[in-house]
């Protein structure tokens, strides 16, 4: 059986203007307990790849440029 691609609005938002992942920063990817953030090959910026968030906030708290915002996942907002 083939797998479907279901859309899902993710809670972690990255301001690409502030994100310095293209300069080699990986802090948010490194600290996430659920390992859901990645650096995009296309943009060089961090993004939430997997919708598996505990809305815990290390990614936002440790980001050196304040580029990351953790929102409450829609299902429990």
């Amino acid at each position: 059986m083939p797998l479907a691609q279901q859309p899902s609005s993710v809670p972690v938002v990255v301001d690409e203007g502030k994100c310095i992942a293209d300069k080699g920063c990986t802090v948010c990817v490194d600290v996430c307990p659920l390992d859901v953030l990645r650096i995009s090959d296309a943009t060089g910026k961090a993004f939430m790849k997997y919708d598996e968030c505990w809305y815990c906030m290390p990614c936002e708290a440790d980001c050196p440029t304040g580029a990351v915002t953790v929102n409450i996942p829609f299902l429990l907002r």
């Binding site: 307990p33 598996e52 505990w54 996942p73 299902l75």
Partner: peptide, 15 residues
């Protein structure tokens, strides 16, 4: 499963 239905919306750290 939390009542929200979100798999990772657990009381404990979901890891």
């Amino acid at each position: 499963l939390p009542t929200s239905g979100y798999l990772f919306g657990t009381y404990e750290n979901a890891a």
